[in-house]
Design a protein around this nucleic acid. Structure first.
Lengths: 343, 343
DNA sequence: TTGAAAGCGTTACCAA
DNA sequence: TTGGTAACGCTTTCAA
């Protein structure tokens, strides 16, 4: 069913049908009604690809997120809210999962696939995992937006202020009297994990706390990784009395290890996550965390991208601030404790 | 940059360039190399929309999933694995989140948007929330695939065997000696929740256990909902000694309530979730659940859809079986206990 | 206000 | 093996 058939049935020209479809006001109301009736009758819907070709606009944008392994809901929400923002403005979203793990060049392949689909812009929300795009972004010739990227690029990069939340978290622990603060760092080959780690060190410095590299365990940013990382920290001669984590999944994994060792979170050891997933409020004890809202971020990213697509003025420098969310997974350090339970 | 410009630069016709792009073997190798050189040089990529228009095929499929509210990672994984299966076969995926909550007709809108984009088929993985499509599916005129749907439709519907896992779960609880088995049902306006509930009742019957409607709390299938639902059950004069849940999120929510009341999971009350999210292994105690793998399901759905698109033979009737996964959230009922802790 | 016709970037048929 | 040309379904300019 195409525009020609509708034109035939309604006894008008294709041009008129086109105008009716696009709500052009200069069409005679009677004619318009007749055409609409036919359209409804046969359930005709215009071919978007043909429209796009003729108009030279696809009204489609690309979204590249990291592989969602381990069931981390963070990227799920990014997708949801990005899509929603896009549909609201009449855009469709093409999604790619950048499989950085097994193929660092995969992001490039994703970008190419999207260019073939004539996307009008691309949001790369991989928070530092887009390294393979280094030096190639400007030649893509398309509006792009990054978040937390470490690229030299002309495209706007939503700067993630990891420090804001981290600083308050450290301050909070210090108020309780903690001085031996550990960290589950996530894999430092990942730039977003490096950035979080950097933020921690800066936060320590700002709070005038000595930083002890011994108290950092590099581990996966997953449930399993957190469990292992915490085990490493506990095996230290003098374990930390409080532990910050690169994300909530790792923190929840760490809780499992603590529980297995008969240690109580908050009482025996304080724990703070990162991301503030909704599950934080539902673990035992509720996990204090640093909020990093996928919803706000996704919306901000789409708006920034749209701004680039519409080419209105300069790129607005955007920033997203994390912030501390207090729950119940922290407390005073056990007096004289080494972090291992006395029995 | 289009095919005409490439043709010009390479000194050949557009037809030849087209053949080179599509790896047609009849092209003279020398010519092909020359054309390829030009293509690489200018970074040309064919316009997929134009290709689709000319070929009459979009190589795009639609995927409709439920709104991912509350950060449930289930649908995130569905998307990930569906996309992966699709890309592998050279298809692109258009995603829509069916916002059933606020607009039951939204699924229809999604389908229409997808038809305009010329998708070659649509997978509706909303597990029973596609009611608004009732009676309209066959007129869509596109291969479709459903999962756990309750529609009369010609399209293949991947039947979810909820009973298999449920039966083993009930059996397991009975082996421990439980007879008062409660259920957090999820909202019964949602068909997938009704189906799970039905499965439970059948499972009870199969295990020759009397079913007590009093022990069922209707609640949201979310963390918050589970917490509330469990509170309702605990306020009964004679609460259940074991509780099955419509999904893991609700079960984890329920754990929070139990903890708040000073009750210990497994010892004081047994708990079994549904879905087997990866987080199950990391809550305290690890949550026994019923596995419902988004990965297998998504792959199965895409394969079925592709089968429909390629029109090869009959629809293959597909089934997905859930199964019981034992962890540590169950135990013997407290002797003589009413489910409320004696202090 | 309407219609004819050119064009969007590609494919595919037919003839050479 | 190659090139010319008519499609694909739509929009948009130009004339009427």
């Amino acid at each position: 069913m195409n525009i020609r058939e509708i034109a035939l049935k309604a006894g008008v020209s294709r041009s008129t049908v086109s105008r009716v479809i696009n709500d052009v006001t200069t069409v005679d109301p009677k004619l318009a009604r007749r055409v609409k009736a036919v359209i409804d009758e046969v359930g005709y819907r215009p071919n978007y690809q043909a429209q796009a070709l003729a108009r030279g606009r696809s009204h489609t944008v690309g979204l590249i997120v990291s592989e969602i392994s381990g069931g981390n809901p963070f990227f799920a929400e990014i997708i949801l809210y990005f899509e929603r923002a896009a549909v609201e403005k009449g855009f469709e979203v093409l999604i790619s999962f950048a499989d950085i793990e097994t193929d660092p060049e995969h992001v490039v392949a994703c970008v190419n696939r999207m260019r073939e689909r004539q996307v009008e812009g691309i949001a790369v929300l991989t928070f530092g995992m887009e390294e393979s795009l280094e030096g190639k972004t400007d030649s893509v010739g398309l509006p792009m937006v990054f978040a937390g990227a470490e690229l030299k690029t002309q495209a706007p990069n939503i700067e993630i202020n990891y420090l804001a939340g981290m600083r308050d978290a450290v301050k909070h622990l210090m108020d309780f009297g903690h001085t031996r603060i550990g960290y589950l760092s996530g894999r430092q080959t990942w730039s977003s994990m490096r950035t979080r780690y950097d933020a921690l060190r800066k936060a320590m410095k700002l709070n005038k706390l000595a930083f002890d590299k011994e108290l950092v365990a590099e581990c996966d940013h997953t449930l399993e990784g957190g469990a292992e990382g915490m085990a490493k920290l506990l095996s230290l001669p003098k374990p930390p009395t409080a532990v910050l984590c690169c994300n909530d999944m790792a923190a929840i994994g760490a809780m499992k290890t603590l529980h297995a060792r008969g240690l109580e979170v908050a009482k025996d050891i304080s724990l703070i996550g990162f991301d503030d997933l909704s599950v934080c409020a539902f673990v035992q004890p509720p996990l204090t965390s640093i909020r990093f809202s996928p919803r706000e971020l996704a919306t901000l990213a789409f708006d920034t991208l749209l701004h680039g697509i519409q080419g209105t003025g300069d790129k607005l420098p955007q920033q997203y601030r994390t912030h501390f969310v207090l729950r119940e997974s922290t407390g005073s350090p056990r007096s004289g404790s080494t972090g291992t339970k006395k029995r």
